[in-house]
Design a binder for these strands. Structure first.
Lengths: 180, 180
DNA sequence: ACCTGAACACCGTTCAAGT
DNA sequence: ACCTGAACACCGTTCAAGT
């Protein structure tokens, strides 16, 4: 049953598709979440998705953007806590979207759309960590230090560490940033 | 022109397929390297690949195994150098196979074959780094420390850092392992 | 403006059939 | 034992056609 015959705004229908895509990308991954499944979950035919999104990667990026915005917004609630706690929070927040993280890395070479999103994401993370660097860390090392933190966080998210290993890793990273 | 009519051993033909697959996986990635392309590069029809390999993931793992064996073997040539140098060497060695690394992470949830290979790979890396830990590092932290190194290396490989950033990151990691 | 049915060029994989 | 042709159930995507 098609719905959008003016009883829904375009944005509302778009959000419905986004919700369907979001849930399927998380549970089934990029390959598992076919355009057919996503369309069905939104009560549409596959080809109709192309009215709202240029291609699958654009749909994927829209979903990723949604989570990134939510993440940065929620970060405010922990921004004042010690760095180690923030990192644990970050890992816990990203763990549910680990399929998205893996997909970004797998497709970054094939889709310029995803490539763009990816570098934006890393810029966000770097500024987030740079702000917390102790002043003593020499300029030349900053990039390397923040890179280590970002990569380690990504690793912790995509490789399932248990809770103990995660906190241990986060404290180790925080110690490093504080010590320089 | 089909070839294997007893003028080639099964192993030889298998190696030919592996060579074709290897080159295509590196240049085109997992998705780009279709069974059709791989078969064509080996002078076969796609379905014939299934005589030698159970499915695409088994073929992929065979390729990954090849590179891992080569890596561990060549590591002997740098095993005596300082840790930072070893890490730079490791990143440089893995960079050409970055597509493989990304694929492993993207498919680890969907293929048990790859999942198995992946945990084997990390076991290898961990023992490799643990051997180089200073004795002072407390038992409880070891797992976290080696995890940080592994993840940071993986990150450096899959996110293109320039040469300066790479050496800087590797020295930072080495400093960490030595300092505890 | 929004949505569909039908089609296109691909996938990975299976299987009966050939040598 | 090795290899193929033909088929199957899918993909993502395009496009002319409907309302």
């Amino acid at each position: 049953m098609p719905r959008n015959r003016q009883d829904q705004t375009k944005q509302a229908k778009r959000d419905e598709i986004l919700a369907a895509a979001s849930s399927l990308f998380l549970t089934e991954g990029y390959d598992g979440a076919s355009m057919g499944k996503i369309a069905a979950a939104a009560g549409l035919t596959p080809n109709t998705l192309y009215w709202y999104f240029r291609d699958k990667d654009e749909l994927f990026v829209a979903v990723a953007d949604l989570y990134l915005a939510r993440l940065l917004q929620q970060h405010a609630t922990v921004a004042e806590k010690p760095l180690a706690r923030q990192l644990v929070w970050l890992v816990d927040s990203l763990r549910p979207v680990r399929h998205l993280v893996a997909t970004v890395h797998a497709r970054v070479a094939r889709s310029s759309r995803i490539e763009q999103w990816h570098s934006g994401f890393h810029r966000q993370m770097e500024t987030l960590f740079e702000d917390q660097l102790t002043i003593e860390v020499p300029e030349a090392r900053r990039a390397a230090e923040t890179a280590v933190v970002t990569f380690a966080i990504e690793g912790a998210v995509t490789h399932d560490l248990d809770a103990d290993a995660t906190t241990s890793l986060c404290h180790s990273l925080a110690r490093r940033l504080a010590a320089g």
